[in-house]
């Protein structure tokens, strides 16, 4: 029997089962159950997204009633905007640093804290704690630490005789963005650590026992067993971090306001400036659409992997 015939037989058998008296056909019932969520989804996500798409094709100032269709002008203007160039480069740098470092540190902490020890839960809490703090509070705390005159960082450098390394951390183009990245890494290390810890606990101990008996040292066990077993987790962490990184707004806005000058502008803050401050809602929304497209593109492999595994 060919595979095709088998499929048809299976389909007939399924139909027979659902046609049995007393058994209700699902019909529109599942849709009705999904409807409340669907309505909310359409009303609060799809409809605003379509509206945003429309606004990005107009010259709306964000306040008045006038919305003139300008086609793709707003998108073409992105290429002439030097701040968009700065913001795009900053977004790429931000993504690289705030993905690679938290992933690496998260994995490192997870491996170290995966051991059975009385202190492990305490350290897990400590490392995860920054992730639950509001970003605006974190921004304020770090801005005080970076204060050029009274901040803890420059004070420590002065105290230990390294006053030559003192900087105006947030007040110069050369250090401002990197200085904002540090709290971002600090905040974002806890999340991958948690995912890696969960994944590490699902790796069977037998694998390590067998490897030990075969003479594999800890480094080999990590590279041959641990790291490959975490492949799915790497994927999830990477995809979610990528989306998160491209949406960066809070820390930059609160710590530097995009400055000095435009040096720490990212796409999110530049979008905000145009929509909410410059009364260029059409242009700002075009930036928002670009951010969304990039974030969605980054999320597609993750979604596909989830669909495949389910």
């Amino acid at each position: 029997m060919s595979a095709h015939t088998l499929d048809r037989t299976a389909a007939r058998s399924t139909r027979r089962r659902t046609d049995q008296p007393g058994r209700a056909r699902p019909g529109l019932l599942p849709l009705a159950f999904a409807a409340p969520a669907l309505v909310l989804y359409l009303g609060f996500l799809v409809w605003p997204a379509l509206q945003a798409l429309w606004i990005s094709l107009t010259d709306w100032d964000g306040l008045s009633d006038q919305q003139n269709f300008v086609g793709l002008d707003n998108y073409l203007a992105l290429f002439d905007d030097k701040v968009v160039g700065i913001a795009a480069v900053n977004n790429v740098l931000w993504s690289i640093v705030t993905i690679v470092l938290p992933m690496t540190l998260g994995l490192l902490f997870a491996v170290v804290l995966n051991r059975k020890s009385r202190t492990s839960p305490i350290f897990r809490t400590i490392f995860y704690a920054p992730a639950v703090l509001p970003l605006v509070s974190i921004a304020s705390i770090w801005a005080w630490l970076y204060d050029p005159s009274d901040g803890a960082i420059n004070t420590v450098l002065r105290t230990i005789g390294l006053s030559g390394l003192e900087q105006s951390w947030l007040g110069q183009d050369s250090t401002a963005l990197w200085s904002v990245m540090i709290p971002a890494v600090w905040v974002r290390t806890g999340f991958p650590m948690l995912l890696y810890l969960a994944a590490l606990q699902s790796i069977p101990d037998e694998l390590y026992e067998a490897a030990s008996m075969d003479g594999a040292n800890r480094r080999k066990q990590f590279t041959r067993i641990t790291f490959p077993s975490l492949r799915d987790t790497h994927y999830i962490v990477l995809a979610l971090s990528l989306i998160e990184s491209f949406k960066v707004f809070d820390l930059v806005y609160a710590m530097t306001y995009g400055g000095p000058g435009y040096s720490t502008q990212v796409m999110g803050t530049w979008m905000y400036a145009n929509v909410f401050q410059y009364f260029n809602a059409g242009y700002g929304t075009a930036i928002a659409v670009v951010i969304t497209v990039v974030a969605v593109a980054a999320g597609i492999p993750y979604v596909r992997s989830q669909v495949k595994s389910s």
């Binding site: 801005a143 970076y146 204060d147 050029p148 005159s149 009274d150 900087q167 105006s168 951390w169 947030l170 007040g171 110069q172 401002a176 530097t256 400055g259 000095p260």
Partner: peptide
């Protein structure tokens, strides 16, 4: 002017003035 003034928030600058910095 304040060292690293470009990275200092206005409220902090005015507070520093009141404190005699």
């Amino acid at each position: 002017i304040t060292d690293g003034a470009l990275g200092v928030a206005p409220a902090d600058a005015e507070q520093s003035f009141v404190q005699g910095t």
